[in-house]
């Protein structure tokens, strides 16, 4: 058990966090870029966009599952940032600030979609026999075995279905924690809430996901 804990903590440290990778010199140059952009320099703003737009696009793509929507969110987020850059007061990192804009846009989109889906009525129940997916799962990703590959694709689809069943907020917290590797404190800042609320939301999200995936064959 303690082995499992130690593995988890090591992985958590190794998980890529854009904030951690930023060195002191880069922070200084980013601050200068922000100040120049605030003073009206388009080139400085373009440089800021280049620093963050790939991560933004990745998050949006995963949350929306649609390239078109991801592009829309990418564009809208940076436009919004460009127009309201003068209000940025260095109270948090620029990364947190831009993610706050992105997560808000994504949450809006997800809420709209959820509302549409609920209106569309009948959910198809694809349940046959039951299989305890979670305990049999393997971490081996180099799947040369075609059966294993198919299994993984199915699993991926089930995971996406399970994620879709979360509330937009639960989905957002889970995505930012699991896929982006952000600290819950940062996630709380991005979503304008407390770390404690973010913890509870993560707890609920994992519980729901387990429940949704436990019934998958």
């Amino acid at each position: 058990m303690s082995d499992a804990l130690s593995i988890v903590s090591r992985e958590a440290v190794l998980s890529p966090s854009p904030r951690k990778s930023v060195r002191a010199g880069e922070i200084t140059s980013e601050t200068e870029l922000i100040r120049e952009a605030q003073a009206g320099s388009r080139a400085a703003f373009d440089a800021l966009v280049r620093q963050h737009d790939q991560a933004v696009l990745r998050l949006a793509l995963h949350l929306t599952g649609s390239e078109q929507d991801a592009q829309d969110i990418h564009q809208e987020a940076f436009l919004k940032a460009y127009k309201s850059l003068a209000n940025f007061r260095f109270e948090c990192s620029f990364y947190t600030w831009i993610y706050r804009i992105v997560t808000n846009l994504c949450l809006d989109l997800m809420r709209r979609r959820k509302a549409r889906r609920e209106e569309q009525a009948v959910m198809i129940d694809a349940a046959g026999g039951e299989m305890d997916l979670l305990v049999n799962v393997s971490d081996d990703r180099a799947g040369a075995n075609p059966d294993r590959e198919l299994e993984r694709k199915q699993l991926g689809r089930h995971i996406m279905d399970a994620l879709e069943k979360l509330t937009p907020r639960e989905r957002m917290v889970f995505e930012l924690k699991h896929f982006q590797g952000l600290r819950l404190r940062t996630i709380g800042e991005m979503l304008n809430t407390t770390e404690e609320t973010a913890k509870n939301t993560l707890f609920r999200a994992t519980k729901k996901l387990r429940a949704n995936l436990a019934g998958v064959r």
Binding site: R152, L155, F179
Partner: peptide, 21 residues
């Protein structure tokens, strides 16, 4: 079970957006 969920989720990682996109 929760650790299994985390591992299962890791099998469906976030895809990097294509250079074209």
């Amino acid at each position: 079970a929760v650790e299994g969920l985390r591992k299962a989720m890791s099998l469906s990682p976030q895809e990097e957006p294509s250079a074209n996109l």
